[in-house]
Write a protein that binds this DNA or RNA. Structure first.
Length: 169
DNA sequence: AGTTCGGACCGTT
DNA sequence: AACGGTCCGAACT
């Protein structure tokens, strides 16, 4: 396991609250939804300029994504924490354009493992960078909502902003 | 139409 | 060995 080293934590202010982003030397490693108890970033005196720049990109992208638009440029992502299967799943998610949706089964198929349907669900739930890696655009096959780790209200909200019609909220 | 039930299937812990 | 952000068909209402 690579040293548990330097994760720089920075907050992203949005109309929806303060997200918490953490960066490794490789890129954005996780993005956390706002919490009830305000999550303060670790005291971080010296944040490398490179990471500050990534953070600007993250901030811009997140704000765009939250308003239902294409996030545009993303910072480099450090998804090394995931398994190989998870990373391939997350990669597939990134190909879903805003306003479009796929089912868990469709993702599984695109991975060449049509039966790994539930595993895809698991991978979505383990996604460390929600919204930017659009796990919310994956619905159940019956056109129903499916689940969402960050809370179903978020899933509904995000989809609606992208113009996707979802069953009553 | 809609709902519920039960198995099958796969990666993760 | 057990659990999920599933899926499908069958058997109901």
């Amino acid at each position: 396991m690579n040293s548990k080293e330097l994760l720089h934590e920075l907050t992203v202010l949005t109309p929806d609250g303060e997200f918490l982003a953490s960066y490794s030397a490789k890129g954005l490693a996780s993005l956390n939804f706002p919490r009830k108890t305000k999550q303060l970033p670790r005291e971080d005196t010296a944040v490398p300029p490179k990471i500050m720049q990534w953070h600007r990109t993250t901030t811009k992208a997140l704000q765009l994504a939250l308003s239902g638009k294409t996030p545009g440029e993303l910072p480099p992502l450090d998804l090394s924490a995931g398994t190989e299967f998870q990373r391939s799943a997350w990669n597939a998610l990134r190909k879903i354009a805003p306003g479009k949706t796929r089912s868990y089964a469709e993702i599984a198929q695109s991975l060449g493992q049509p039966k790994a349907v539930r595993a895809v669900g698991g991978a979505c739930g383990a996604n460390p960078v929600p919204i930017l890696v659009p796990c919310h655009r994956v619905l159940a096959a019956n056109r129903k909502l499916g689940g969402f780790s960050g809370g179903l209200d978020w899933k509904i909200r995000l989809l609606k902003r992208e113009g996707v019609k979802v069953a009553e909220g």
